[in-house]
């Protein structure tokens, strides 16, 4: 379970905020962003998330890997699903609508027709704002939260000891898994295995990656047994636990929590009480395509 941690103290605004307040804020953004398709509300949430992210003073180099993963997710969800196939917009964007290219267009001398509508394109923008808002507030957690703080944060947020420590371990399990995966990949490459050469149908692909998946999974099982033993041998879970890491609220933490609650309350009120929950396309957007 020993891996290098991404966290380091950056003397940022976020570093000064209590981890509990930070988590409450992140979940408030998550709930707010997922309770509306209204582009104005999503834009506001998006702006707040950007400011929150900027307050963490994270460099691109630090977070590059995480953003790469999110880019892949965004590409699949937005470009492939919503724009090309239209599948992701189902149920939110009404059928029909105004075509972006009503007369088709010419590409490499061939005339093509493409059923992308102005509505679906706006939906892609809304979806982008929603996913990015959530990503911005959650991607920064491993970089900004001290590894010692996880368990006690969840505990003080009301989770029982066992569950709180389980949360701490699961956060640490991900980088451990990544490290083990690399070791196994190296060991199998040294036996002539090449990941690029995994071709064929889905079953063949799964069979071909078995040399990676099986050792990593087996190791995870074996090491979880070791961890459980190490914990048992030191009396874990037998009585109420104290935590070495101390958390202390300051006035600004209460301010962050209050802001999160007001923001979430406001969004929920506008979404469910003032009809701003559903997807709609602003008039000026249509203007761009006329």
């Amino acid at each position: 379970m020993l891996v290098a941690w991404n966290y380091r103290y950056r003397n940022s605004l976020i570093d000064r905020i209590d981890p509990r307040a930070r988590l409450i804020f992140s979940f408030a953004v998550l709930i707010a962003a997922t309770s509306t398709w209204n582009s104005l509300l999503l834009a506001i949430i998006f702006m707040i998330s950007i400011l929150w992210y900027a307050a963490a003073k994270l460099s691109w180099k630090d977070t590059k890997r995480g953003w790469m993963m999110i880019s892949i997710l965004l590409f699949t969800m937005i470009v492939v699903n919503t724009i090309i196939t239209g599948g992701g917009a189902g149920g939110v964007v009404p059928e029909g609508g105004q075509l972006v290219w009503p007369d088709g267009f010419n590409l490499f001398g061939r005339h093509l027709t493409f059923g992308l509508t102005v509505e679906r394109l706006w939906f892609a923008v809304a979806q982008l704002m929603r996913i990015l808002s959530i990503s911005l507030v959650f991607i920064m957690i491993p970089y900004t939260m001290d590894s010692r703080a996880y368990g006690v944060t969840f505990r003080k947020l009301g989770l029982p000891d066992r569950l709180a420590y389980t949360m701490e371990l699961s956060f640490r399990f991900i980088p451990t898994l990544a490290r083990n995966f690399q070791v196994t990949l190296d060991a199998q490459r040294a036996r002539g295995f090449e990941l690029d050469s995994v071709k064929g149908g889905i079953f063949n692909k799964i069979k071909r990656i078995a040399p990676l998946i099986i050792p990593v999974t087996m190791n995870a099982i074996v090491s979880s047994e070791d961890i459980a033993n190490a914990m048992d041998l030191r009396g874990f879970g037998q009585q109420k636990r104290t935590w070495l890491y101390e958390l202390k609220y300051h006035w600004w933490d209460y301010a962050v929590i209050a802001f999160a609650v007001i923001m979430l309350g406001g969004v929920l009120f506008l979404a469910f009480g003032r009809g701003m929950r559903l997807f709609h396309v602003p008039q000026w957007w249509y203007g761009l395509f006329n």
Partner: peptide, 23 residues
Amino acid sequence: RQILGTYVINEVCFGLESQGMPR
């Protein structure tokens, strides 16, 4: 495989935390 804490002091305190000892 035995070390649970990410910092030395946390690792050393783990068993004591489990006993519910004051900080």
